[in-house]
Amino acid sequence: MPLILATSFAELKDIFLMQGFAGFSLFAVFLLMALGLAIIFGQMKVINMAHGEFLTVGAYVTVFLSHMVVNHAPKLLPYYFPAAIVCAFVVAFILGYIVEIGLVKYLYNRPLDTLLATWGLSMILQQACRSLFGAREDTATLPEWMMGSWSPSEGLDIPINGMFLLALAIVMVLLVYALMYRSRWGLKVRATMQNRAMAGAVGINTKRVDRVTFALGCGLAGIAGAAFTTIGSVSPSAGSLYIVDTFIVVVFGGAASLLGTVLSAFTIAQSQSILEFFLTGVLAKIFVLVGVIILLMIRPQGLIASKVRR
């Protein structure tokens, strides 16, 4: 009798761990998406509804590269992925840079209008992807080392791509933290966003800061896109599926706080994946969204926000 109890307990532990790890994968996707948006929306106050399309662009860059590698240099297959991440970043960065110059820079003092304009942008980008790559879903060929799963003990399978995703997310958070809060450039960004006139007066090229910051946020979405290919297939509307979630993560975390974004991505992803165990996926989603909205009413400033002297 005690023996049976012990095994079932061990099984339960494994299920719990695996379910928890599914939450971690979701957490990583949310976090990667939200990081860029936390900069663009949290710092710059631009409501970038096209953020999801930058993810799509990054994902397509990765898929494109993987096809290239498979067709022309199959030997490189195990190694191409890091390069794909860099390429996805660069392409999304350049695209973001152009968008800033062409559109966003005119709308900084009209936040609600950025929402409408970038929604238009997202329609254009989606259609452009559809015209270029077709409406069908496409998948990247993953290097072999990324597939399969790791089983530290019997009955416990942790997918390797999930671990890779999580590691990537953690690295990116640390990088963004170092860039925004530990570098001179980050200081310039924060100064510009807090007091544009004053930052300009002390010799910061605020326009350049705006351009690079926006492009950086977009580039991060591109990385999210590259990461996205490890867990799903890409379609022109792939990014738009995540946009509402991502905004909710950023808003819930407290718009200007990196730690808040991490915590909020964790909370939302874990509660969703745990609820999914008890309810259907859709119901879990509804529950989480309603919960977040209610929490936002109680605490409109989000999870982490300093009490400012007004």
Binding site: K45, I248, M297
Partner: peptide
Amino acid sequence: RRRVGGVYFALITQALCWIMEISFVT
């Protein structure tokens, strides 16, 4: 009453809209 306004209100109403859609579909 909680002074949720502007962008936040826009995003929350959007999420509510989404909730309505998925619950009506299911």
